[in-house]
Each structure stands twice: as structure tokens, then as C-alpha cells.
Amino acid sequence: MTPLIQLNGVTKTLKGQGAPRDILSGVDLTVHGGESVAILGRSGSGKSTLLSLIGLFDRPDGGQYLLGHRDITRLPERKAAALRSAEFGFVFQRFFLLKHLTAAQNVAMALVNGQGWLPRRKRRAKVMAALEQVGIAHLAKQRPPRMSGGEQQRVAIARALVREPRVLLADEPTGALDTETGRLVIGALHAATERGCGLILVTHDREHADRMGRVLQLDNGVLAPATERVGV
């Protein structure tokens, strides 16, 4: 079976004002459709950098990045934007919802992005289906300031799911939530994998990580299976 995502010896060096620093030094990662992978690591270990490479926010300095059979290591920005829209869904620690838009309009943001055009009726149906998927369809007309943190994060997940991506990338999505709400959010993300979507979760929380199919540890720029595992 062809892997959904394949990173081979990916490297990334930060070139700031000081001396260059190797953040990723030969990362190998393979993710299949329907698989969930958690990436653990200390702060500054490069988890978010790895996620931004996978999500085509940035390009690796070395190595190879395959999406299916396609080599997307050096993709021009225009094509990267199209791929981000079509193949990836993103969930961030901060929800990044626009306060002046309703939950439905926030979700529709991923559909009204200049990558193709859906008539209003179809757009609305897709938005409502995504909200239904995360269990907050009744909040479609609410604006973010009137919603709880968990509800807001679920709106953000609906936004990530509305284009039915093949890969879901979540960067510490429970960081701003209490434990119970965090479990609900992880459950909503995990549910997406049941429809064949690959999930890569970056987290500090070992409990949430253990709910994923695989747990990896990023240490000194190298990705390796995590040694310790608590019960799921």
C-alpha cells in the first residue's frame, strides 16, 4: 500500500542572526491513510517546524518529501497553496477563529479561499456536515466570543475537515483546553481517521499521544519511536 506521506532524511537548519542551528537532521516518517501518529518532544525540539514542513508552510533544506507518489519537496508557493487547500487540514493550539464571523462562516473560510468555487447551497451543506461531524451543528450561527474553548476548537476542527483532507495536522490542539475538553477534541480528531484521513498530532500530553496509533519522539532533530507508553 502506498504511504500517504513519506519523509526521507529531511533536514532543516535555522539561519538566524547567530550561528545556524540544525532543527531537523535527517527525519524519516511514513504515514498511511487512516493512521494516527503522535509526535512528542521538548519545547524547541522542532515539532512545529516538522509540522510546518509537512503542511507545506515551509520547505526542507534537504531530503525528500513524497505525498503519495508525488515528490513535493520543492513545490512553488502557488502549487503548495493549492495542495494545502486540497490535501491538508490544520488545527492549531490557538483556535484562530475570526470574531466577526459566525461558526459556519469560520468553517466556510476553508472553502472560500480562491481554490475553486462552490455555489452557496453546496458550501452551506458542506459546512453543516463538518459542524455535524464535530457535534456542534447547533452552534452554526454563534460567534466565537459566545462559545467555550472546547466549542471554538471544534469549530477549528470542522474548518480543517470541511474540504475532506487526506491529512490532518494538529499542533498542540488541546494546549489551551482543560483535560476533559481536551479528550473530547482528541476524540473528534481521532474520528477523522476512521474515514481514511491520516492524522499527525504534535503534543506535550502523553495521555493524548497514547490514544494515537503510533507515538514518536523528536529529539536532537531525529524522529524515533517513543520508549514509554501509558495505557490507552
Binding site: R78, A81, A86, F96, A110, N113, G114
Partner: peptide
């Protein structure tokens, strides 16, 4: 800034942001 960065993250091309 965050709104525009987010829009880029969800696939909005730079030209559309200017638009």
C-alpha cells in the same frame, strides 16, 4: 496578520490576500 496567515494556511494564495 494572524487572519491573513491563517488564510494562507488553509490554501488561500497570496494574490487573493492582496485581492
Amino acid at each position: 496578520i494572524e487572519e491573513f496567515a491563517l488564510r494562507r494556511a488553509v490554501g488561500t494564495p497570496r494574490s487573493l490576500l492582496a485581492g
